Simulated assay, not measured.
Amino acid sequence: MPYSIVIADDHHLVAEAFADLVQKFDNYDVLFVAENGRDLINKLGKSNQIPDIALVDLTMPEMDGFETALQLQQLYPTIRVLALSMTDREEHIVRMVRNGAKGYLLKGCRQSELRQALDDVMTKGFYYSDFLTTQLIRNLHTPAEGGPLTFFKLNGREHDFLKMACSELTYTEIADKMCVSPRTVDGYREAVFQKMSVKTRVGMVIEAVRHGVIDL
């Protein structure tokens, strides 16, 4: 059974272009196209099928992509949101991730990247391109004191590791800065991964941003 997709974009031609592309992919089917977030929510309420993926434009009248992502997370948590945008502004990327988006695509992306994004969100649960990862890691700063300790129940050393890991430092460099062995850093990493329910460094960074543990 093909994966089902809905698209929300107030630019009709853009929405139809994405719909036509998706329809050409094996194992994917477009349920409907909505004019904005409110239209999307209304159509979902009348539909007898919950889609697997929602392609959501950021700038829409009545209900923009940020609010739409929040609404979908609350009302339909199983829907994987992929953000669509004409811009690569860091604050927009981070805000959408915090609002539950599983990936961020520029509208000028290649057909192959769209396909990769759809495949990744269905198999991995997220799509984090090199561009997205670089934008997030490069702009991370220290979290508010106590945030990660209370949210993810990290101890002090795990907290220190998380802050350094949300940077471009290698694990070896983190070990040097923490004055511990690389094996000890491996232990911190595994503990943090387990407490944050992630499997990769990128996933750890994304979750830290999404839950407000790391602030811009």
Rank of each mutant, 00 (worst) to 15 (best):
V6L: 04
V6S: 09
V6Q: 12
V6K: 00
I7Y: 08
D10S: 06
D10T: 05
H11K: 10
E16A: 13
A17I: 02
A17V: 02
L21P: 02
N27Y: 15
F32K: 04
F32E: 01
A34H: 05
R38N: 12
R38A: 15
D39S: 10
D39F: 05
D39Y: 10
I41G: 11
K46P: 06
Q49M: 15
Q49E: 15
Q49L: 14
I50D: 15
P51Y: 14
D52W: 03
I53S: 10
L55W: 10
V56N: 03
V56S: 11
T59E: 03
M60F: 04
E62D: 14
E62Q: 14
M63A: 02
M63D: 08
M63R: 08
D64F: 10
G65D: 03
G65H: 07
F66W: 09
L70S: 14
L70Y: 13
L72D: 15
Q73E: 14
Q74A: 14
L75D: 10
P77V: 01
R80F: 01
A83H: 04
M86F: 13
T87D: 15
E90N: 04
E91D: 09
H92T: 00
H92C: 07
V94P: 05
V94R: 15
R95M: 11
V97I: 13
R98D: 01
N99M: 02
N99I: 00
G100N: 02
A101H: 04
G103N: 13
G103W: 10
Y104Q: 00
K107S: 08
G108A: 09
C109R: 04
R110P: 00
Q111C: 04
R115A: 11
R115N: 12
Q116C: 05
Q116I: 02
A117Y: 13
L118R: 05
D119K: 10
D119P: 06
T123Y: 14
S129T: 10
D130A: 13
T133C: 09
L136K: 12
R138I: 13
L140Y: 02
L140W: 01
P143E: 05
F151D: 01
F151A: 00
F152H: 01
K153F: 06
L154K: 03
N155G: 08
G156K: 06
E158V: 03
E158T: 02
E158K: 05
H159Y: 15
F161A: 08
F161T: 04
M164F: 12
M164P: 03
A165D: 05
S167H: 00
S167C: 00
L169N: 07
T172C: 04
E173F: 13
I174F: 10
I174L: 09
D176I: 11
K177C: 12
S181C: 07
P182L: 08
P182Y: 11
T184R: 03
V185I: 07
V185Y: 11
D186W: 06
Y188T: 08
R189A: 01
E190A: 15
A191I: 01
F193T: 02
F193Q: 15
Q194N: 08
K195W: 07
K195R: 05
M196G: 01
V198F: 03
K199R: 12
R201D: 12
V202C: 06
G203I: 07
G203D: 01
V205D: 13
I206V: 13
D215V: 14
